[in-house]
Amino acid sequence: MRKKSTANRQAKAANNKSANGFIRIISGQFRGRKLPVKDVQGLRPTTDRIKETVFNWLMQDTRGAAVLDCFAGSGGLGFEALSRFADHAVFFELDKSAASQLKENINMLKLDNAVVKQGNSLSLLEQKTQNEQFDLIFVDPPFRQNLAEKSCFLLEKNNWLSAQALIYVEVESELSDLSSPDNWMLLKEKTAGQVICRLYQRQTN
């Protein structure tokens, strides 16, 4: 029985290991580093090709930015921004195991300018913030859960955004009619396979 139990544990560990994966930082001070990612339902890391497009759009705007990764998942967008010398980043993540992995990856990269907040992103965004506003925000939620549009309006309503904040939104391609706050200007848009990528800039009077 002991041998069988040991074999079962080893098989389970092997399956878990194979189910998990890695993301790769594509540029900046951590270029080429691979970070472990938990296999979590709904977690959909942004592909390297899309990340390259997004950060080409943001080339002049990442350094020194205060970053909020609203549905962090693997943290691929937030870590990419930190690699490119963003000032600091806050990661929101609902899943406990994914949040724990984000913390481990922060420690692995020896970052002292990144924080993980484990919890429901919409609930976190419902809280008005007066002290901290963000210059660069990533909204890349799990598909088909009606999260992106709600997040965008909460960001605007509850004072999360700096005066001319940039907001990157990634949604499933069927959401071509996604609404955004009236004072957000669409700067860039690209359809890549099953996703639509949009970059907005907040406008203030």
Rank of each mutant, 00 (worst) to 15 (best):
V139T: 00
Q118Y: 06
S173K: 07
A66I: 03
L58Y: 00
L155N: 03
I23V: 14
T46F: 03
G32N: 10
N183P: 00
Q10D: 09
H88F: 13
G42E: 11
L68Y: 12
T6V: 15
L175E: 03
P45Q: 15
L186T: 05
T46L: 02
S5N: 14
L199C: 10
V37D: 05
S123L: 15
M108E: 09
N113Q: 12
L161M: 10
R24T: 10
L199K: 05
R49G: 09
K188A: 09
P142W: 15
W184M: 02
N183V: 04
V90A: 02
F55R: 00
N56K: 05
E93R: 11
T204Y: 07
M185G: 02
Q118W: 12
L111A: 03
R84G: 05
K157Y: 12
L178M: 08
K17G: 04
N146L: 13
R63L: 10
F79C: 05
Q194T: 09
R9Q: 15
R9C: 10
N15L: 14
G73I: 07
L102H: 04
G193F: 03
F85A: 08
S176E: 07
S83Y: 11
N131V: 07
Q29K: 15
N113C: 12
L175P: 00
K110Q: 11
S162K: 05
S97Q: 13
Q133Y: 06
Q164L: 02
S27K: 11
D112C: 12
K150M: 10
Q194M: 13
S180F: 09
R84I: 14
L187E: 10
G21N: 05
V139P: 00
L125G: 01
K190S: 01
D135G: 05
S121W: 02
L58V: 06
G75Q: 00
D69R: 00
K38R: 06
F138H: 04
V171I: 15
N56V: 02
K96D: 04
Q29R: 08
Q194D: 13
N120V: 10
E104K: 15
I196M: 14
V40S: 01
S151L: 06
S176H: 07
K190D: 06
E132R: 15
A89S: 11
T53N: 05
G78Y: 03
G78W: 02
F85Y: 14
A89N: 04
L186P: 03
G76M: 01
